[in-house]
């Protein structure tokens, strides 16, 4: 979906930035978004506070809350799909390679 939205909006993204937070993904405020996502998924209380504050500063409170909501949604979706045994969709291999991960 990231690739699809980037292509649609004529934005150049480096999907390796999904895997490696030191790489600039090309997504506006990508580092701040990833910092919050990491803190939330890894349940780091201290980092969460810092990262959320930084994200609010970068994109505004409404957008930061939306980012938080999206992370929550994918905690749900990840569990759901792993729990029923759905692996990577057909055609995911090239995208996975671009990110720098393997698929199952």
């Amino acid at each position: 979906m990231l690739r699809a939205s980037a292509d649609h909006n004529d934005v150049t993204v480096d999907l390796a930035g999904i895997r490696d937070a030191t790489i600039d993904s090309g997504v506006p405020h990508g580092h701040a978004l990833i910092a919050l996502t990491d803190a939330v998924v890894l349940r780091d209380v201290d980092e969460r506070q810092i990262a959320f504050g930084a994200l609010v500063g970068a994109v505004g409170e409404q957008a930061a809350v939306r980012a938080a909501a999206v992370a929550g949604n994918f905690e749900m979706m990840n569990r759901l799909l792993d729990g029923i045994g759905v692996g990577a969709p057909p055609g995911a291999a090239p995208i996975a390679a671009e990110i720098g991960v393997s698929v199952w």
Partner: peptide, 24 residues
């Protein structure tokens, strides 16, 4: 949505899924 672009939304989605090592 709420001043967050689709690209930004999908970055959060992708990073969450990567950290969770979700197969899908």
């Amino acid at each position: 949505r709420d001043d967050l672009s689709r690209i930004q939304i999908e970055l959060v989605a992708a990073r969450t899924s990567l950290l969770n090592d979700c197969g899908y």
